[in-house]
């Protein structure tokens, strides 16, 4: 009985303890938009809205954090997701890519969306507003095709 109590207290202490280890939040200052994709291609408001809702949490320098992201270890898990996402594609740093890479990325974005590989199912399960309707998918793909020709 005594050992169980000790273990419970230890677990609680550890849970409280890890709350102090907060990963750095992915939030850029508003000014830092020099390399943003919107500087390279015209993005209609409707498209911008879809991108922000469905893509930017993992693929830009600005993540909208849900409440549970402030509780560890959920926050750590999310931070690693954002890190991988930004490595593969970062709309806020799009201007840093070579011309060729920009075009190729647009091409692959289209494929990811058409084949329902993105947005990730594990993400849209919780972030229901990131789910894309067929119409939104068509809008995105058309815009990407146009941008890719520039």
């Amino acid at each position: 009985m005594r050992t169980i109590r000790i273990m419970a207290v230890a677990a609680l202490a550890m849970f409280v303890g890890i709350q102090f280890i907060q990963p750095v939040k992915n939030r850029s200052s508003q000014m830092d938009t020099a390399n943003d994709i919107s500087r390279l291609y015209p993005i209609p408001a409707g498209i911008q809205d879809i991108l922000q809702r469905a893509c930017y949490d993992c693929h830009s320098n600005t993540t909208r954090y849900p409440w549970y992201a402030h509780i560890q270890p959920a926050g750590w898990w999310m931070a690693s997701h954002v890190k991988t996402g930004k490595e593969a594609l970062n709309f806020s740093e799009y201007g840093r890519y070579s011309l060729k890479r920009r075009r190729n990325k647009l091409e692959r974005m289209k494929e990811e969306i058409l084949e329902d590989r993105m947005p990730l199912g594990s993400y849209t399960m919780i972030h229901t507003d990131a789910r894309l309707t067929a119409e939104e998918k068509a809008l995105l793909v058309n815009w990407m095709a146009e941008a890719g020709e520039k």
Partner: peptide, 10 residues
């Protein structure tokens, strides 16, 4: 080379 480098590496 630079025009192709980052794309190729990716």
């Amino acid at each position: 080379y630079k025009e192709n480098e980052d794309d190729l590496k990716e």
